[in-house]
């Protein structure tokens, strides 16, 4: 191939642990997480920023990891689904998804939970329309979203208690 490929080494923190990821600069963060860091909880549903299955938090902001090139991850703090539970203790959002039927096939669930966690960190008591808007970038084909809304509402209740 005509141009010699150059990989980059990127240092970042994922779920509180330091990582050095070595790959091409335009490697999608999604692939770096799944293939280089071995964190397969983050899913690919479209690769074009539409479905949100690859949602993660980067420096506290919800982003689609399929649209982030590795070269932009230098120094970043990342949270994936693997970092949402505290050891064996599920987060309120996870507990609520489990109790309310928020997950069916489960493929949208990691991204959906990250989106919900991120929403609640910005807005601990969202209204129904704020929940709908906060999750609008995470497509779910199984649930019709109804039980997901209920899960988020329930997570707020758990957090209040």
């Amino acid at each position: 191939m005509n141009e010699s490929p150059r990989k980059v080494r990127v240092q970042c923190e994922i779920n509180g642990k330091a990582y050095t990821l070595e790959a091409y600069p335009m490697t999608r963060l999604l692939d770096a997480l799944r293939e280089h860091a071995g964190l397969t909880g983050t899913k690919e549903g479209c690769g074009e920023g539409e479905c949100g299955a690859c949602s993660i938090e980067m420096d506290g902001a919800l982003v689609n990891s399929c649209l982030i090139p590795l070269a932009q991850v230098e120094g970043a703090q990342i949270r994936t689904i693997e970092g949402v539970a505290n050891a064996a203790q599920l987060s309120f959002v996870q507990q609520a998804f489990l109790a309310n039927g928020g997950a069916q096939c489960g493929i949208c669930t990691p991204g959906m939970i990250l989106a919900a966690v991120n929403l609640l960190s910005r807005n601990p008591e969202p209204s129904e329309s704020e929940i709908r808007e906060g999750l609008a970038g995470n497509l779910c084909r199984c649930t019709g979203y109804t039980k997901i809304f209920a899960s988020v509402v329930d997570a707020c209740r758990l957090a209040r208690q």
Partner: peptide, 12 residues
């Protein structure tokens, strides 16, 4: 709750 729910909400 869903039998395999825990695996699904934790990404495992």
């Amino acid at each position: 709750p869903r039998k395999e729910g825990r695996e699904k909400v934790t990404g495992s």
